[in-house]
Design a protein around this nucleic acid. Structure first.
Lengths: 397, 397
DNA sequence: TAACTTTGTTTATCTTTTAAACTAAGATTA
DNA sequence: TAATCTTAGTTTAAAAGATAAACAAAGTTA
């Protein structure tokens, strides 16, 4: 049976300590006096919390040399080197791992191609990457505080991978495996959720409390941030926006549905179109990099299929916006490298199809974190989990 | 500047008081001792809170006559007659008003047809209905604690009606008008949001913390309950699922978009189809009531168009489910009276088009509150607002 | 140098929770 | 019927923590 949180002195203290900590972390450096004025907490309370946080190595102090007409304040800094986090982007043909400090600054990165998606091979590569990153982590009070993994598939509430079509995995409990190997907390999340979390914390969506991150790769997935929290659905599998029906009588998708958005607006759709339209000379293999260079040199056929792709992306975005009325929609993953050519057709479609109020109030952005979205998001989920364990943050997913 | 909530003794007390109150309200009647065991609060704390709540007339006690081997417990009851709430369903050609107790039990109802949707006429009828209900409210400690209004249109964060197409209203601040007239708190919400809130509190979705209520009337709107809270979007206009594109190249909707769901799956779509197919003899006016009786007598053409309607509803529901992974989807408003004939085609489409995990985990239900959803939901929003003012509940919309 | 400012700590007070003791009241049993 | 056991609810004393006010520290300004 789950006990609810009741109000007692201990709870009050945890609450105020987390207020002080978050003030320092998010708006710091700040003096005790400033924190008191800013949060409404008494100076004495702030002092108590600050010295505890200093004892715990989560905060350190440096005397300021700027006086404003009285005693100089002592500035409190978040100790972003109190520990380190590891984030993994589990791609389909690669694994990217990053080591970050507690502010999400990338310290090291390792990438390895994946020859096969067989679980054993993936797991070995994964362990190798994590191991390498761990040895590169500098000495610190808390060491490596956790591992976050962004997976290309459905992740359930226990963080088992339910179904990852492109890896051909079903019911894989990667979390437990990795946790048993390294004996530190492991968080597994869907790749789009990682991206959303990342953009919300460090990227284009920093200022936004309701945002939708649309990850367009082989397929389309979405991460949903509602009131500053990641929403993952009742069983953890929300955000399957790639399987929006945008053509009720369209062709069948492997998911069972017909006319899914991702059949028209994904990387896969782009590659199929390119193949069908024979936009490249015969002996060129078609891949994204090639299409980028062709677009840059002004290949008309390529520009045409990008235009169509943008229109279809726009059609799906109207659905997203009408549904969520988000502050912001961020388009990420590999398709983001075509932003120059997609922006116009997307905006045209939105101008055409959205109601006045939505047009006025919704920002459409492309990811600014590029290929790091997923790995960095995974690392930051591990950080949130750590801070949540320290009762300094609340993580609700 | 908005002060954040810090932890102090007063906050702790409010918190524990609300825990005791909600235990009594939602799981009551309960004795002090049971509450203590259930919540983890000390018996002494429960006693303190209980006597305050009794002083405030929100709770009363009745001695039990059942002993379980010792002193008989005194049962604490929520005083659902401590005050009354008024809920309004602002239809397009009618206004329905209800007077409820604090448990959402309907005590009185008044309905009036609307000859025109001109603001002055609507306002007068509204005031008449509210006035009549107020005089019918029994004497009570808090009197009529507020008025909730469910409106058929977009409501912004200040609860002004931005746009109500079927009323032909734009930028109407009904809230302030009514509040100035009656001098008690007025809450205005979109009709689908009211329905969602109502189903969540009293109806089919009582047990569910993530649910989507789909209101199918002339158009289609949706109310979104996420983690037991109503989510209304950044500007208050989320849930416009009626304008989902389900046919990218479909015909134009008045919203600007093409192939919107509500063009295929609403009451309007049903009526249009019926007209086009000439399912009724020439001199019969086509309306919903007539179609219900025809369906009951087994009119094949009517059954056919209902089948098609159901399939289109199902297509939109796959979008909703893929997006939100809700525990439950509730279909409400006037279309719910066709549930007998819609259930099968909807389920067929979902079986066909949803992935295994969604099929297993999503409940599809029809509203059990029928024509009262919106008015009752509005009343309950007013109640939540009252309890929130008393610091006994938190309302986050 | 004196007066004023700003920062941060110490102290005494206040509120509230809680465990433990106690009162109340009924059931069971010898 | 009296003694014992159970359960419910209140009282009391102790402990925790926030806060205002007093105080100490360390600077600026005139």
């Amino acid at each position: 049976m789950q006990r609810i949180q009741t109000g007692d002195q201990n709870f009050v203290k945890k609450m105020n300590k987390s207020i002080v900590f978050n003030a320092i972390k998010n708006k710091g450096p700040m003096s005790r006096s400033q924190i008191s004025k800013n949060t409404g907490l008494n100076k004495a309370t702030v002092s108590t919390m600050a010295s505890e946080l200093i004892d715990e190595s989560l905060v350190y102090e440096i005397e300021s040399n700027q006086s404003s007409g009285g005693r100089k304040p002592v500035m409190l800094y978040f100790n972003n080197h109190a520990g380190y986090s590891i984030g993994i982007d589990l791609g389909v043909n690669y694994i990217l791992g990053v080591l970050t400090d507690l502010n999400g600054t990338i310290m090291e990165e390792i990438s390895r191609p994946l020859a096969s998606t067989a679980f054993a091979e993936v797991k070995n590569t994964l362990i190798f990457i994590i191991q390498s990153l761990m040895t590169k982590a500098p000495d610190s009070p808390y060491g490596v505080i956790g591992i976050g993994i962004g997976a290309p598939g459905n992740v359930d509430l226990n963080e088992a991978i339910l179904f990852a079509p492109n890896l051909k995995w079903k019911q894989v409990d990667l979390k437990t495996d990795i946790q048993n190997h390294f004996h530190i907390p492991v968080k597994v999340q869907n790749e789009a959720n990682c991206g959303a979390y990342c953009e919300h914390l460090y990227g284009a969506g920093k200022s936004s409390s309701n945002l939708i991150y649309i990850s367009i790769g082989i397929g389309i997935g979405a991460g949903i941030i509602i009131q500053n929290n990641l929403y993952t659905g009742t069983s953890g599998i929300s955000g399957e926006m790639g399987h929006f029906t945008i053509n009720a009588n369209g062709r069948k998708c492997r998911c069972g549905n017909h006319g899914c958005w991702e059949l028209y607006a994904s990387e896969q759709a782009l590659l199929n179109d390119a193949k069908k339209q024979k936009v490249l000379s015969k002996n060129d293999a078609i891949n994204l990099e090639k299409l980028v260079t062709e677009a840059q040199t002004g290949n008309k056929e390529v520009l045409q299929i990008l235009h169509t792709l943008g229109e279809y992306i726009g059609i799906g975005l109207t659905n997203v916006i009408n549904t969520f009325n988000p502050e912001m929609v961020i388009i990420g993953n590999r398709i983001a490298q075509f932003s120059n050519w997609l922006e116009n057709p997307i905006n045209h479609v939105l101008q055409d199809r959205l109601s006045y109020y939505h047009k006025e109030n919704t920002d459409i952005k492309f990811s600014v974190l590029g290929i790091y979205s997923s790995a960095l998001g995974a690392a930051s989920i591990a950080i949130s989990n750590f801070l949540s364990d320290q009762k300094l943050e609340t993580m609700t997913f």
